[in-house]
Design a protein around this nucleic acid. Structure first.
Length: 304
DNA sequence: AAGCGAACCTGGCTGC
DNA sequence: TGCAGCCAGGTTCGCT
């Protein structure tokens, strides 16, 4: 599920519980997620203070202080805990002393749920539980001065909400690509953080057919085409609006069950096969097709 | 070299 | 109710 807006929402949800706080205890229930967890993973996190939480594309980056507070321990360098949520990774925050029962998705306050894999006990008494039933998620520990060049991040394209992403950069990235624009936008080297949902949404909003070849969207000159201009703007607005929608769900997370990131707002085309197109004035209806093994939802009438 | 399908793993839903 | 088959929001690998 998690694309850039969901990952950002999770990051914001973890921040108040983790930033500036110490990890008092780590429970690691299995040696691997998608990949093996780092050597001595639990030990290396225990006692470390979280400096700040950042996000790059779909990765959460948790910066850990160089030295543990309290009793002297080994002198760790400053490190970054890098987290990818895969398809089904999620975090749940359990406030201190809550004697809650496991929720209906199998997560429990003590990490007792069937797919609860990692539990961080913060010094404040909060528990942060990582649950991932498909186990496509992963975590790694990277020296802070190597984070930008580490294997996970080094090939990523521009961050879509930053100044590094522009009609000009997108134009250049799409040129010469014969693959459909839908597939090109899923390529994290072209622009980082989009997934299947937001690619469908951005293409719909910009009126571009998902089957159009990337190189035909971009044209041959350095000057961005109108389609690329529109696409750049809609990628930004679709993501920005989704982050705002996610932010509003965070405000009452304490109200609910502490689960982060799973705001379900309805999308304009995604998963709406057969419904009328929502674009004003358009009489088309939403169709579904499969491109490189993934569902694409689009309107054949207003997307050209 | 680019681009596509399969694989990774588990669970939920649909239809017979 | 049971069960086979299909589907899932991501990434990587291996083949053409």
């Amino acid at each position: 599920m998690p694309e850039l807006p969901e990952v950002e929402t999770v990051r914001r949800g973890l921040e108040p519980v983790m930033e500036g706080r110490r990890i008092a205890h780590v429970l690691q229930k299995r040696p691997d997620l998608r990949f093996p967890l780092p050597e001595n993973f639990a030990k290396r996190l225990t006692g470390r203070t979280v400096l700040r939480l950042e996000r790059r594309a779909k990765y959460i980056l948790i910066y850990l202080a160089a030295h543990a507070k309290g009793p002297p321990q080994s002198h760790h360098p400053e490190e970054v805990l890098l987290i990818h949520l895969g398809m089904s990774g999620r975090f749940t925050i359990w406030p201190p002393k809550q004697s809650a029962k496991p929720d209906d998705k199998g997560a429990g306050p003590d990490g007792a749920g069937r797919h609860d894999h990692i539990v961080w006990d913060m010094e404040s008494g909060h528990k942060v539980v990582y649950t991932d039933h498909r186990r496509f998620g992963y975590m790694d520990l990277i020296a802070a001065d190597e984070i930008e060049t580490c294997k996970h991040l080094v090939k990523l394209g521009p961050e879509p909400l930053s100044n590094h992403f522009s009609a000009h950069s997108l134009q250049a990235a799409l040129q010469g690509k014969r693959t459909p624009i839908k597939s090109a936008l899923l390529d994290q080297r072209v622009v980082a953080g989009l997934g299947n949902i937001y690619v469908c949404e951005a293409l719909h909003r910009s009126g571009i057919s998902p089957t159009r070849q990337a190189q035909m969207v971009a044209g041959k000159t350095a000057k961005p085409t109108q389609r690329v201009e529109r696409l750049t703007a809609t990628i930004r607005s679709v993501l920005q609006e989704a982050i705002e929608a996610g932010g509003s769900t965070l405000q009452d997370y304490a109200h609910t069950d502490g689960e982060l990131g799973y705001f379900q707002h309805r999308f304009k085309v995604y998963d709406r096969e057969g419904e009328p197109c929502s674009k004003s004035g358009c009489k088309g209806k939403v169709a579904r097709l499969v491109q490189s093994g993934r569902s694409t939802f689009y309107c054949g009438t207003c997307q050209k």
